[in-house]
Amino acid sequence: MEVALDLRRRGVFEYHGFLIAKEIQEREGARLLTAHGTLYKALYRMEKAGLLSSYWEDPLTAADESRPRRRLYQITAAGQKALAEARPFQANPTVRLEPREANP
């Protein structure tokens, strides 16, 4: 999700699976690219949860560049909201939720 938002800030509003894997690798300084299974399982689940949306690009675009069609992902409003809510916990994992006061 962070990667999706980073790409968006850099003006990339739609991204395919391999681009996300590459961004994760560069962001985290990882030696290995994310495995196919891990990457696409996560994308599939995030899309099902409404955090991402996706569609197949125009076949003519792919044909023009002589390559397979890309599945393009975008972060949704719900995804951005979920990420904003998760940020405080990412910055300080020891933060704990205070119990709500009971209504009198």
């Binding site: 290995l32 690219l33 994310t34 495995a35 196919h36 299974g37 891990t38 990457l39 696409y40 399982k41 599939y44």
Partner: peptide
């Protein structure tokens, strides 16, 4: 090598995804 590595490391996730899908 990278292709084989990405495929092999993803096998458990693929199987979990398959069972749940």
């Amino acid at each position: 090598l990278v292709t084989l590595d990405r495929t092999a490391r993803g096998v458990p996730a693929d199987l979990v995804w398959r069972v749940g899908t």
